[in-house]
Every structure is written in C-alpha cells, then in structure tokens.
Design a protein around this nucleic acid. Structure first.
Length: 482
RNA sequence: UCCUCAGUAGCUCAGUUGGUUAGAGCAUCUGACUGUUAAUCAGAGGGUCACUGGUUCGAGUCCAGUCUGAGGAGCCA
C-alpha cells in the first residue's frame, strides 16, 4: 500500500476517498485508551488519529506502541466517530518500525507533557519531535523558500560568496581563524610569530563575517544579486539575539540609492510576513496561541499589546516609519522619558544609539517598525557612502519591536578617492582591499544593499524570544553540542 | 565580558525564624476501565537538595568559592 502523508489526508489534498485503503508512517504522540494512536509524520502540525481494535491485535505488539515509537499503520480511511477530527484511520495492520522504551523516554523531552524551552534546548537533537519546534522549523523552511522566491521573481541572482575568506578588513566583528597548522607546534617566523605562509592557503584566513564586499563586485556586473549563507562571529555575546553561527541574506543592487534600498527592504520584509501568513496558517495559529499563553504569564506591563498574528498583520499593512538619525536624536531629547531622566545612557548627536533608545523609538514613540538613516560617519562602517554634509553616511537600520535591529544596510561609497580616504581614516590598508577598491576604477556605479539576519526574522514570524530556539543546532559561546 | 536572578524526583515547582522520615502536579510502572482528544480512576517506585569548602549540637535553608542556566547590558544581524 502506498504511504500517504498525514498532511495530504487531513487537508484532503490527495483526493483520497473515504473507504480507501491507506498506509501512514510516523511517530506516536499518544496512545489513549489502548485504542487511539495519535500519529504524526512531521508533514504538518496535526496528528492523525488511528483507531486500533485491541481485541484483534497481540497484547505484546500493542505494548510496544509507546510515545515516540515509530510505526507504520495500514487500514481504512473513515469519517471519525469522535468530535476532535474529521477523518480517522481504522487500523487493520500494524508494523512496529522503531521501538521507544519508556525508561529511555523518561529522560528526554519526548515524554508526553509540557517542557520549558531551556530543557528542550538541552536536547536540541530531539526537540524536532515537539509541536513547537515542528512548527518553527516548518516556518523556517517556508521563509527560506520565500526569500529565494522574492528575489528570483524580481530578477536577482543568488550568489554563493566564500565561507573561508582572506580579508580581515571588514570590521564586522571578531573572526574564527581557519588553519591546518598543528596548534601545538606551528611553524614560526624569526620573530616568533606564526608563519602562515606554510598554512594551507599560504596566508591567514578566517570564516566569513559577511559576504557583502564580494556581493558588491557581482552587483557591479550582474546588476542585482543576493547572498544567503552562513556567517560566523567569534564575539563573546551571551544574549537571546546572538549566535556564533547564523544565516544572513545580503542583497546588493547596482544603481540603487538609499531610498531604493529602503523601499526594497520594506517590500521584502512585508513579503516574507505575507508569505508565512498565507502558507503556514496552521503552524502560525499554533505559535500565536502559544505566544498568547506566554504573554498571560507575564506581568501586565510587559505583555505585548498584539498577538503574533496581529503583529505580523501590522507589519504588512502599515508603512515603516522613516527618519534620520538626527531627527531620532531630537525625538529622544524632546521625549518625556528623557526629561524624566529615565534613560541610563546619555543622548546627544554623535553617540551610537543604545538598545534602550532604539526600544523607546520602536515600542513607545512610533509603535511600528522604524528605519533610521543617515548616521554619523564615525559610528558606521568605512564602505558607507558619505553624504554631502560631510558628517553623515547613507546608512540605514531597520528596527523591529521586540527584536531590535533586524536589518542593517547602506548605499555604498562608489567614489574611489572618497573610499580610499575612508579606508585610511578607519586604519584599513587599501592594499589589502585592492580587489574591492578596483571596482571603483572600472566603471563605478552607485549601488546599495543590506543584510537581514535570517534567525531574527524567524524570531519575528514565530514569536520565539530566544534566537537559539529558531535554529536547529545553535552555536553560542561554550556551546557546540550536537 | 559585566550586572541581576536561579539551580530540590525524568520535567515544572513548593519547602516557614536553621530542627524528626524533603512534598505536589505531570511523566513512568502495575491494575481497572474502554470512542478517547494533555483520556479517566486506584496504587507503586523514583532524591548525593548543582559542586567544593565553611559556620553550627544540627544546613535544602546561613556564608564563601566554582560550575551551569535564564534575563538585562555591551558588540551586532
């Protein structure tokens, strides 16, 4: 008998008639009354109810139908006698594919009860079996697919930028070194430093912190490209928003200025939310209810005003608030919050905005996604385009409620002399970046791009509040288990 | 890396001013029941109270250090 996916049975998308003989394979979620097997195959959130006439099966076999066991069930698809589901499987044959012993189950997250996310994280290899993580990772896939679809539909080319990189001048954080040298006995130079000329690549190399510079080169030939790959930061960050290994999307578009860049970002983020709303209804509804229950546990002041689904609708339906850094500083200085001295950090033009300032703007002042632009040149990266005022650069940060910075981008400095000058000012050797600088000599063009933290986006569309719960195998300081 | 809080059964937690044998719910096991929906009912087993040291007649409880986790901060996506 052909195996059918539970999703297709419950949605009736395969056109299976009641009375048909079918087979399903999956994992047991619950076995109630020695009669009802709740079986889930991961194709969707919901499980199929399979009804076993226990008098017709061997007791020893029924004993092995335990939570988490893997079974193949064959029988007749019938209209359900019970109230909780439309159809159920009247079982005529049971094959036990993989046992799960109760003694072992007891120690894992698969025991049939609620668990804390912290406990589930300790068994990241098993948490896929839970409703919450099943929903999160199905949605993660959907967003990943939607990203490729969005760009493909607009004529972008997906670019695979290197994971091992020789450039150490990007200034995007601490890097992981990659080497095949013996750490106990490396070849040394005369001055005692390590001689990387004998290393695999003949020079010191690292894991990439960004594919942007490489993407710029491609954009100045292919027109519009995007990267979607792993990114590594060796920062000792212990927060719910940082990973040492994460995935980033970096579009780069020739002839775009900062306004175009903002328009693209806003359309992109709205598209991703819409895609999840339309294609992940069941999982999203489950997570929204889960989020609502979590909110009720919190003190009233800390509760989100909107549900997960409402928050996504809000992002889709409302324009993002756009203002310059300079305007944002004025808003902060004029706020009652500032006048009552509730900020812990000072507010003045030239400072880098603190989390508390960003949160105030997004969550208190505007209550919607905010795009801040035109930051002081000193606090942003060397490659961002200098504005005519000589003080600010064409940078933009997109801030989301509850998440903080979800996108960082800019119009790039396309003028060779200006870029060279910025390199010097930032203490970067232009020679090191000659491969990057050269594009500005051969038909340079205005261009712009941004980076979206994939996991931060997944946090927003799933309502999960710790980034370690939206990536299958999180890598954080002191943790690379699994 | 810094600040705050926490660590008691497989899990989530309670445990009074330091005082006899450390409790509950869920989970597991045994039995009963059988159209259940986190099934229900009865019973049972299950503990190095994170670790190390200290104070005390006596420490889950007080003190110090260490480890682990969470929340916040910095860095950023």
């Amino acid at each position: 008998m052909e195996r059918l996916k539970i999703k297709s049975l419950l949605e009736n998308s395969a056109g299976i008639q009641l009375g048909s003989e079918i087979t399903v394979k999956g994992w047991v979620r619950a076995f109630r009354s020695n009669r009802f097997v709740q079986i889930n195959d991961g194709s969707c959130l919901a499980s199929l109810q399979a009804v076993v006439d226990f008098e017709k099966f061997d007791d020893a076999l029924l004993k092995r139908i335990t939570t988490a066991a893997c079974v193949s069930l064959s029988g007749t698809l019938i209209a359900s006698h019970g109230a909780g589901q439309a159809v159920e499987l009247q079982v005529t044959s049971i094959e036990l594919i993989g046992d799960a012993h109760p003694d072992d189950i007891q120690k894992t997250v698969m025991q049939p009860k609620r668990h804390s996310l912290e406990f589930l994280r300790e068994q990241a290899h098993l948490r896929f079996r839970t409703n919450t993580f099943g929903a999160v990772f199905r949605i993660r896939h959907a967003v990943s697919f939607a990203i490729h679809k969005f760009f493909n539909d607009r004529g972008f080319f997906n670019l695979h930028t290197p994971i091992i990189t020789g450039s150490d001048a990007e200034g995007a954080g601490e890097m992981f070194h990659v080497s095949t040298l013996d750490p106990k006995n490396p070849p040394l130079n005369e001055d005692g430093t390590i001689n990387y000329k004998e290393d695999f690549f003949g020079k010191q190399v690292n894991l990439t912190v960004s594919g942007q510079l490489e993407a710029e080169l491609a954009a100045l030939a292919l027109g519009q490209v995007y990267t979607f790959g792993p990114t590594f930061r060796a920062e000792n960050s212990n927060t719910s928003r940082h990973l040492a290994e994460f995935w980033m999307i970096e579009p780069e578009v020739a002839f775009n200025d900062l306004q175009d860049n903002m328009d693209l970002t806003e359309a992109f983020l709205k598209y991703l939310c819409s895609y999840v709303m339309e294609n992940c209804k069941e999982d999203l509804t489950f997570l929204s209810e889960r989020d609502a229950q979590d909110q009720q546990q919190k003190p009233q002041q800390e509760r989100a005003e909107m549900s997960l689904i409402e928050r996504m609708k809000f992002v889709i339906e409302n324009p993002f608030k756009r203002l310059t850094y300079t305007e944002a500083i004025e808003v902060l200085l004029n706020s009652n919050h500032y006048k009552k001295k509730k900020f812990n950090y000072p507010v003045e033009w030239g400072i880098d905005l603190q989390s508390e300032h960003e949160r105030y703007l997004v969550e208190k002042e505007f209550k919607c996604p905010v795009i801040l632009t035109d930051y002081p040149a000193k606090i942003k990266a060397f490659y961002m385009r200098m504005n005519d005022d000589g003080k600010t650069v064409a940078a933009m940060d997109v801030l989301f409620p509850g998440i903080g910075e979800i996108v960082g981008g800019s119009q790039r400095e396309e003028r060779y002399e200006m870029l060279h000058q910025k390199c010097v000012e930032f203490g970067i050797d232009p020679e090191e970046l000659s491969w990057y600088m050269e594009t500005r000599k051969f038909g340079t063009a205005p261009h712009a791009g941004f980076g979206l933290g994939f996991e931060r986006m997944i946090m927003f569309v799933t309502g999960m509040t710790n980034i370690r719960d939206v990536i299958p195998f999180p890598r954080t300081p002191q943790n690379a288990a699994f």
